[in-house]
Nucleic acid binder design. Structure first.
Lengths: 112, 112
DNA sequence: ATATCATTTAGACACATGTCGAAGCAGGAG
DNA sequence: CTCCTGCTTCGACATGTGTCTAAATGATAT
């Protein structure tokens, strides 16, 4: 990668998005455009060991378990997190590639 | 390519967001979590001269003028674009600081 | 097998959001 | 002034979304 670029601005401001790309990116952005999901993503990513149990997450909110489960599903469907069951508990961890994809959209290329 | 050294991860995955920060960021993200607004932002930012007339934007969509105006207002309220009337036409341009703020959230620190 | 705990699914409901048509404002042109 | 054009605001409507309760599934222990 490392497109030569004039580093003028973020990719989103460099050339017009196609209708298709815009639709795809919007679904990704919708997944993070919610305060609860934003905190969930943040809590999972910053948790020791890189993963967090659902039980840890649920306790941090004033919401019911089904609601948290719903939000986790949205994040997982968007490819932002990945879940795995180990015994009694389910553990989630973030998928950094997808997170970076979001960042790249709005970040001016700092090609060193 | 972005130097992925020392930096472990994006800010959002470094430490848990506070409830307050999450709410604030979510409103910003909601503003861009729509395919039409994503394209509008992209078209304005990549337009020659750094600004675009509403008339140019409206023609690019299969939507009515009120709908485009509504989306522009959402972007402007979020601080992502700034509009100004000059004579007959209204011109919009992006506010790079706000766009960068979004990018920084999801981008691993580039150790420059 | 039964009980119990952790998580997800299903169904329902209130509220937010994207879209439209109609009407209102602002600025030029005749 | 009156018209016309560009853009925004208003009000209404259908659809989408966040939340809940109730019930289902999975896994472990008794």
């Amino acid at each position: 990668m490392t497109a030569t670029t004039g580093a003028c601005c973020a990719p989103i401001a460099r050339e017009p998005l196609t209708e298709h790309d815009a639709a795809e990116l919007a679904t990704l952005l919708k997944a993070v455009a919610d305060p609860v999901r934003l905190r969930l993503l943040s809590m999972i990513g910053s948790h020791a060991g890189g993963e967090a149990c659902v039980c840890d997450l649920t306790d941090a909110f004033d919401l019911t378990a089904p609601t948290i489960s719903h939000h986790l599903k949205v994040l997982r469907t968007a490819g932002l997190i990945d879940g795995e069951r180990r015994g009694t508990w389910v553990y989630y961890r973030v998928v950094p590639e997808t997170v970076s994809r979001l960042g790249a959209l709005f970040t001016p290329l700092v090609t060193v």
